[in-house]
Amino acid sequence: MAQFDVSLVLPDTLYHGSTMGAIQGLRIKPINKEFWKDAKDFGAGFYTTIDLFQATTWARKPVVAMERLNKGTDPSAMVRSLPKDQIPVVAVYDCNSNLYTDNIILHDYRGESRAWAQFILSHRHSSTVDNCLCLNEFGWIHPHIACGLMADNDTGQIIEDFRSQGRDIHNRDDLEWFWTQIIRTREGRRLNGLELGDQIAFSAKL
C-alpha cells in the first residue's frame, strides 16, 4: 500500500443541524458521547458538514417526517406548532485545528469508492456507540476524524434489506450490492461526487 505524507487543513467553519433543545449542550460540549447514536455512516460521533444547506436539511428531518404524515398542511404552521425544544436550528462552529497538539488519526474518503462503502457498511451494520469493529474488520482503531461523502437513499432500510436477504458484509458481491444502493436516490437516480453530500465526523478523543 502506498504511504502518503498528508497535511490536512480543516475548514474555518463547520455546520451541524440539530434542534433548539440541544443548543445549550452543543455550545458547552459539542463532541459529547451522551448524544451519539448507533448505526451512523462513519460510526458514532459528532457529525458536521461544510455545506450550510445540507446542515439545514439535517435540522429539518423531523419537520419533513411530519410533512409526510400530514400532507396538505402548511409547513410553516407545523413548525409553529412544534415545542420550542424541537424547532430546527443549525449550529455554526469555528474550527481551529492549531489548538490541538495530540496525534490525530484521520480517514478522508475521497469519492464514492468501495473502501468508503465498506467503511459505511461495517458501521451501519454492526457497530454501536460502545462497540466499534474497526480493529477486527480493518486492523486499525477507529479514526478520531472521518471525512467523506454521505450515503444517499434510505440507508436504514437498505441495511434491513441487506440482513433480510442474508447478505454478508465480508462478501464482495454483497458489498457491491450495498455500494450500488447508497449512491442512488430513492427513485434510483445515480449520484456522483458532492451530489451525495459532505460530512466530517469527530469521535471521542477530541
Rank of each mutant, 00 (worst) to 15 (best):
Q3K: 10
F4A: 13
V6D: 00
L8H: 04
P11Y: 05
T19S: 09
M20C: 00
G21E: 04
A22S: 11
K29I: 08
K29N: 14
P30N: 07
P30D: 09
P30K: 12
N32V: 00
K33M: 09
F35T: 11
F35G: 06
F35H: 12
F35A: 03
K37F: 01
D38R: 01
D38I: 01
A39F: 10
A39G: 01
F42N: 02
G45S: 08
Y47T: 06
T48L: 02
T48E: 00
T49Q: 08
Q54G: 03
T56P: 00
T56G: 14
W58F: 15
A59M: 06
E67K: 13
K71E: 13
T73Y: 01
D74I: 07
D74M: 05
S76M: 11
V79R: 14
V79M: 12
S81N: 13
D85R: 11
Q86D: 10
I87W: 06
I87H: 09
V89T: 10
V89F: 02
A91T: 14
Y93C: 04
D94N: 15
L99M: 13
L99V: 13
T101P: 00
T101M: 03
I104C: 09
I105V: 09
I105R: 13
H107D: 14
H107R: 14
A115G: 05
A115P: 00
Q118R: 15
F119Y: 12
I120M: 14
R124S: 07
S127T: 12
S127Y: 06
N131W: 04
L133E: 04
N136S: 15
G139T: 10
P143W: 05
P143Y: 05
I145M: 02
A146D: 06
A146S: 15
A146V: 14
G148F: 06
G148D: 08
L149E: 01
A151G: 15
D154M: 04
I159L: 10
I159C: 09
D161K: 14
R163Y: 05
G166R: 10
D168S: 11
N171W: 02
D174F: 08
D174S: 12
E176R: 11
W177L: 10
F178R: 02
T180N: 15
Q181C: 14
Q181G: 05
I182P: 01
R184K: 15
T185F: 00
T185N: 11
G188D: 07
R189K: 15
L196N: 11
G197Q: 09
I200V: 14
A201R: 01
K205W: 02
L206N: 08
L206D: 01
L206S: 08
